[in-house]
Simulated scan of single mutants.
Amino acid sequence: MSPQYPAPVALAADAARRLTALRAQRPLVQAITNYVSMDVAANALLAIGASPAMIHAPEEAEDFGAIANALVVNIGTLSTDWVVGMEAAARVAAKNGRPWVLDPVGVGATRFRDETTRRLLALKPTIVRGNASEIMACARIAGLHDEAAAPKGVDSAHGTEAARASAVALARRQNCIVAATGAVDLVTDGERTVEIANGSPLMAKVTALGCALSAIAAAFAAGAPDAFMATVAAIGVYGVAGEKAAETALRPGSFRVAFIDALDSVSASDVATRLRAR
Rank of each mutant, 00 (worst) to 15 (best):
Y5H: 09
P6C: 11
V9D: 15
L11F: 03
A12Q: 06
A13T: 15
A16S: 14
R18G: 00
A21V: 10
L22D: 02
R23F: 11
A24D: 12
V29G: 07
V29W: 11
Q30R: 15
A31W: 05
I32K: 00
V36K: 01
V36S: 04
D39P: 00
A44L: 07
L46R: 11
G49K: 10
G49F: 05
A50G: 14
S51W: 03
A53S: 14
I55Y: 00
H56A: 15
A57D: 15
P58L: 01
E59M: 06
E59I: 01
A61D: 07
F64S: 02
F64K: 00
G65Q: 07
I67K: 05
I67R: 11
A70T: 02
L71E: 09
N74K: 06
I75Q: 03
I75T: 14
G76H: 04
T77E: 08
L78Y: 09
S79D: 11
D81Q: 13
D81I: 06
W82C: 11
W82V: 13
V83E: 15
E87M: 15
A88P: 08
A94T: 15
N96M: 13
R98A: 13
D103N: 14
G106Q: 04
V107M: 08
A109W: 00
R111H: 09
R111K: 08
F112S: 04
R118H: 09
R118N: 03
A122C: 09
L123W: 08
L123V: 08
G130C: 11
G130Y: 09
N131M: 06
S133A: 15
I135R: 01
A137T: 01
A139F: 12
G143M: 07
L144G: 07
D146M: 04
E147W: 06
G153E: 10
T160D: 06
A162M: 13
A163S: 10
R164L: 12
A165Y: 02
A165Q: 14
A169N: 12
N175S: 14
C176E: 02
I177Q: 01
A183V: 14
D185V: 03
V187D: 11
D189Y: 11
V194H: 07
G199K: 02
G199H: 03
S200A: 15
M203V: 04
K205M: 13
V206K: 07
T207C: 13
T207D: 09
A208F: 13
C211V: 03
S214N: 02
I216Y: 02
A217T: 10
A218F: 04
A218V: 03
F220H: 13
F220C: 09
P225A: 15
A233M: 01
A234K: 05
G236T: 08
G236N: 08
V237K: 03
V237R: 04
V240L: 09
A241D: 10
R251I: 09
I260L: 15
D261K: 02
L263C: 04
L263N: 03
D264G: 14
S265L: 14
S269I: 12
